[in-house]
Design a protein around this nucleic acid. Sequence first.
DNA 1: CCAAAAGTGTTTCACGTACACCCATGC
DNA 2: GCATGGGTGTACGTGAAACACTTTTGG
Lengths: 230, 230
Amino acid sequence: MARHTYDYPRPCLTVDCVVFGLDETALQVLLIQRAIEPHAGCWALPGGFVEMGESLEAAARRELQEETSLDISYLEQLYTFGGVDRDPRDRVVTVAYYALVKRLDHVARASSDARQVGWFPVNDLPPLAFDHEVIMAAAHERLRGKVRYQPIGFELLPTKFTLRQLQHVYETILDRALDKRNFRKKILSMDLLIELDETEQGVAHRAARLYRFDRRKYERLSKRGFLFEI
Amino acid sequence: MARHTYDYPRPCLTVDCVVFGLDETALQVLLIQRAIEPHAGCWALPGGFVEMGESLEAAARRELQEETSLDISYLEQLYTFGGVDRDPRDRVVTVAYYALVKRLDHVARASSDARQVGWFPVNDLPPLAFDHEVIMAAAHERLRGKVRYQPIGFELLPTKFTLRQLQHVYETILDRALDKRNFRKKILSMDLLIELDETEQGVAHRAARLYRFDRRKYERLSKRGFLFEI
DNA sequence: CCAAAAGTGTTTCACGTACACCCATGC
DNA sequence: GCATGGGTGTACGTGAAACACTTTTGG
């Protein structure tokens, strides 16, 4: 194996990803079970080393591709964790990202290699390796804050969704009930949803209308100072 | 010199700091003039290598102490920049921080070593080394966003300040005029300012009352869900 | 026809915004 | 006494919040 030598010591640099998805009931996070020490058998955030020829975001995307077959609909840098004792073996600095995926699309949960992969409700997580509980808490906090003034709730839903589903996203993330009429009024008054000529299928009651988010229009308005807010 | 050898190549890890200060007229940023290549003679953000025994924030504080004799009243991690071609010599990943200092306190600008240090108005900066203009823009953007819903405006003022000065902080950062009566009503209604039995000195007109920010009270309220907002 | 969720309007109240004048002080 | 900024109150309109009933559909 090639060796790499430097005049001064260098920390190890990794990326870790907090992947949020939504099922019918709760906000969930993707974890992998570690195969090797330290913390072998423990659940941890997906992540790995940053390679020399790739940007940080590229490293995060590559790791997510390797661990799962999900397509990421939103990815943003969260924070960089650089405490001296994060890893008992070596000084490891990690750049954390958080991602949103449309889990309702593909119910299947595929894992490329032999490692155990699982979704866990954010409010009922197993113990995590390293300082990953701190990273998780930071990601959850950021999601709660960001969802209120950026249109990222849509990234957790299929392209076509009902207003009920959208309200459910907000209720789940903000962890409080919202008034149905006020929610619909508010979201529709922004005029960023396109009403489709379709309704949901296979429900045992009146079928709800489907909508999709008009991203183009949002981006245009956003440049002119429009602020999304729930 | 000791050599350090690893199985895989590692990027270099640095911190860079965007230090904001306010003078009577404008929002300013602290820059240093580079003594060595690349970009020798060019202005750049203060920063340097992260050492193995210190956290990222500790590295940022150390660099700021070395460059200037300012005491930092607010320091927060901004973003980590990890583009592959940031530095022509080597792969360098930098964790950027932004800091707020009470410049009105000490008018003196001291520099510990021989390097040239200077304050520049954010709206009229010289060309910067590396990708520091991108970092600057991100810091400025973050400051504008954060000042509206976190009580960080106070960090740019002396401990005792007048409402006029505080309004001026907000007008400078948000880059728009605020109505004097509404501003005073809003800020006083939060009941987070302690009215002192002192007035400003040496002005050629009626002297304004001095206030100070009640940080304890803010922290108490904050834990109970209170949201600061201008 | 019944269950279950979709869909819709109005009233109330708080708060943001716009706006003009008197007051205290130093020179 | 005058110039300069300090300090205050009110009216208006917008938007958030609270709240209940009718409609549609599948079984």
